[in-house]
C-alpha cells in the first residue's frame, strides 16, 4: 500500500486536514477576540499592574518575620474553625440524606418530590458558602451560628447530589430479590439500598469535611466566626507579621485536615 502512492512527486504533508484547520482557526480567532475584549474593556489602571510585583514583594517583606505573639488566640480560633466545619458536616447529613433519597430517580416517591429534591440540590450548590454566610450573618448576626448554617446549606447540595448519584448507581438485583420476599419499601431500602451506598456515604462525608475545613477559614471575613475573624482584624490593623502567623496556621490546619481525611479514607473504606 505504501508503494502505490510513492510514485507521486513533491508530496506535502499537513498536520490537519482542511476542515480541522478551519475549526481551529475559528476557535483561535474567537478566543483572541474574547481575550482582546477582556483586556481592553476591563477596568484596570495599567500602571498599577506593572507595579504589582513590587507591591506584592513589599507586602511580603512587611509580613516577615511572622509574629508568634497571639498564637494562643490563633489556636483557639483554629479550633473554632474545626468545630464549625465538623458540626456543620454532621448537621448536613440530617437534611442531605432525605433530600438525596427523594432526588434519586429509583427511590423518589413521586415526580413532585423528585423535582423538589433537585431544586433543593441546585439551589444549595449554586450559592457559594460565603454568600450563604452573608445571608445568615444578616439574619442571625455575626457569629458561629451563621458560619455553621452557611457551611451546612452549601454542603447539603454537595452531599445530596453525590449521594443521589450513588443511590441511582446501585445494583438493582438485590432490590428485586428483597421485593420478591414480600418486603415493604422501607425494608427494601434498609436491606438492599443502604448497605450498597455505605462506602460512598463515608467517602462523600470525609471529602466534604475536608472541603468544609477550607471553607470555614474564610467565614470570618464576612463575620461568620472562625479564624477568618482574627485574620480580618489583623489585616484591618495592618499587623502584617500576625497575618503571616495566621496564614501559616491556616495552611497547617488544611494540611493536617488533608492528612486526617487520608487516614480516615484508608481506614473506613
Amino acid at each position: 500500500m505504501v508503494a502505490k502512492s510513492s510514485s507521486r512527486e513533491g508530496r506535502v504533508w499537513h498536520r490537519y486536514d482542511r476542515r480541522q484547520r478551519l475549526i481551529r482557526y475559528v476557535v483561535l480567532l474567537l478566543s483572541l477576540t474574547v481575550l482582546y475584549w477582556a483586556v481592553s474593556d476591563i477596568d484596570i489602571f495599567w500602571p498599577w499592574v506593572w507595579d504589582a510585583p513590587n507591591q506584592i514583594g513589599s507586602l511580603g517583606a512587611r509580613m516577615w518575620p511572622p509574629d508568634p505573639r497571639g498564637l494562643g488566640e490563633i489556636l483557639g480560633a483554629l479550633l473554632e474553625t474545626v468545630h464549625i466545619a465538623t458540626l456543620a458536616t454532621a448537621l448536613t447529613l440530617f437534611v442531605a440524606l432525605p433530600v438525596s433519597y427523594i432526588a434519586a430517580q429509583n427511590t423518589t416517591p413521586n415526580r413532585a418530590c423528585l423535582w423538589l429534591g433537585r431544586f433543593i440540590l441546585v439551589a444549595s450548590r449554586s450559592v457559594n458558602t460565603i454568600i450563604w454566610a452573608l445571608l445568615f450573618v444578616a439574619i442571625f448576626g455575626p457569629g458561629v451560628l451563621a458560619g455553621i448554617l452557611a457551611i451546612m446549606f452549601r454542603s447539603i447540595g454537595f452531599v445530596g447530589k453525590l449521594m443521589g448519584e450513588a443511590i441511582e448507581e446501585i445494583d438493582r438485583r438485590p432490590v428485586e430479590a428483597m421485593q420478591a420476599t414480600g418486603a415493604s419499601k422501607a425494608k427494601v431500602i434498609a436491606y438492599a439500598v443502604v448497605p450498597q451506598v455505605m462506602p460512598a456515604f463515608f467517602a462523600i462525608v470525609i471529602l466534604r469535611w475536608d472541603i468544609n475545613i477550607r471553607e470555614s477559614t474564610v467565614l470570618g471575613l464576612v463575620g461568620a466566626g472562625g479564624i477568618g475573624v482574627i485574620l480580618q482584624g489583623a489585616i484591618d490593623t495592618f499587623a502584617w507579621p500576625t497575618v503571616a502567623t495566621i496564614l501559616i496556621a491556616i495552611i497547617t490546619l488544611v494540611l493536617v485536615g488533608e492528612a486526617v481525611t487520608g487516614v480516615l479514607r484508608r481506614r473506613v473504606i
Binding site: 445494583d171 438485583r173 438485590p174 428485586e176 430479590a177 428483597m178 448497605p195
Partner: peptide, 9 residues
C-alpha cells in the same frame, strides 16, 4: 435468581 441477587456487603 441467576445472579444470586445477594446483598454483597
Amino acid at each position: 435468581f441467576q445472579g444470586f441477587n445477594l446483598i454483597d456487603r
